[in-house]
């Protein structure tokens, strides 16, 4: 695996293998010294054109636990905020020795473009590109679902997963639809019709406008963050109406099967798409997702770097 650009590039075997590696690496986290020498001498560059503290920190932690050197470029206070282009910034990082560039960018397709343009030789890991994909988020979600509902092994065959919220603008939703269905889960998207992309009928999933109906028999529900800029752009009349129809409160959560779990990629709008009781309640795996994110990103870095020539 030279790059990780899109969850839809992963076969079922690729995905299971990544999750298995993540599970092995997770055991490191339980040790007193949380560090493996695996990527010593390798350099990982985090290139974040968009603010994302949690994803950036997660990749940093993952790289450091594998003993890689880490260079971090973030939008604020760097050449990026002075108008330096993606191409020039990537060339700069490669000149500093980066063998992997972890890219978060506001433009859809930025990671693919960086990987395929011929600008650089380094591997590219997509850490979120515009409204397109966020494959490591999907991997950590799959990992979390597998851990809690499939005893931490194999795929997700037969699971029913409901994804709720701003599907139109969500890279998390796109990557999860691709990856979870590849792993055998059935995915249902729930959103007001204004937040569902045109052409969604061609996606390998169901679409519903009715959350209560979709939750019947669901094994998991994933609540997406509603960005504040959507709240004033006529996608729905008011925050209240959105919360009533598409928010997850304890009454709704109570109607789910006993074993069903709740995920959220964060950061949450408590009281908007999810109430505090549910977010802090027993079904919520939101903190587990964060912990698993580090393990999954360790696995991705390991797979990408070990595919390179001269790999350890």
């Amino acid at each position: 695996m030279k790059h990780l650009l899109s969850a839809s590039d992963l076969t079922r075997d690729d995905a299971v293998s990544l999750l298995d590696t993540a599970a092995e690496l997770a055991s490191v986290t339980d040790r007193a010294v949380k560090k493996l020498p695996t990527l010593r001498g390798r350099t990982v560059a985090n290139l974040f054109f968009e603010d994302s503290t949690r994803t950036r920190l997660s990749f940093e932690a993952a790289a450091k636990r594998l003993s890689a050197d880490v260079i971090t470029f973030t939008a604020k206070g760097s050449s990026v905020s002075k108008g330096e282009t993606l191409k020039d910034t990537a060339l700069t990082l490669e000149a500093m020795g980066a063998q992997v560039i972890v890219l978060r960018h506001h433009a859809s397709g930025a990671a693919q473009r960086l990987a395929q343009s011929g600008w650089i030789e380094a591997s590219v890991i997509n850490a979120g590109d515009g409204t397109h994909e966020h494959p490591t988020q999907a991997l950590l979600d799959a990992y979390t679902l597998r851990q809690h509902l499939r005893e931490g092994a194999g795929d997700l065959e037969g699971l029913s997963v409901v994804i709720v919220g701003d599907i139109l603008h969500s890279r998390v939703a796109r990557s999860n639809v691709a990856l979870l269905t590849t792993l055998g889960a059935r995915v249902t998207l729930v959103a007001p019709p204004t937040l569902v992309p045109v052409g969604v009928q061609t996606w390998p999933c169901e679409v519903s406008f009715d959350l209560d109906e979709a939750l019947v028999g669901a094994d998991a529900v994933m609540m997406l963050r509603v960005q504040t800029e959507r709240m004033t752009a006529a996608y729905f009349p008011s925050v209240h109406e959105y919360s009533r129809r598409y928010g997850l409160d304890s009454a709704r959560a109570a109607r789910m099967p006993d074993h069903a779990v709740v995920l959220h990629p964060g950061p949450m709008n408590r009281g908007m798409e999810i109430t505090a009781e549910v977010a802090d309640g027993p079904r919520a795996l939101i903190v587990d997702q964060v912990a698993n994110g580090v393990s999954v990103r360790m696995a991705v870095l390991y797979h990408v770097l070990s595919s390179q020539e001269g790999a350890p």
């Binding site: 859809s108 397709g109 515009g130 397109h132 890279r171 045109v198 969604v200 996606w203």
Partner: peptide, 18 residues
Amino acid sequence: AQMNEGALSGELGLTGWP
């Protein structure tokens, strides 16, 4: 808007030009 709006723009995550 970035590209023609349809199934492909939804897949690519590019804002549609209907």
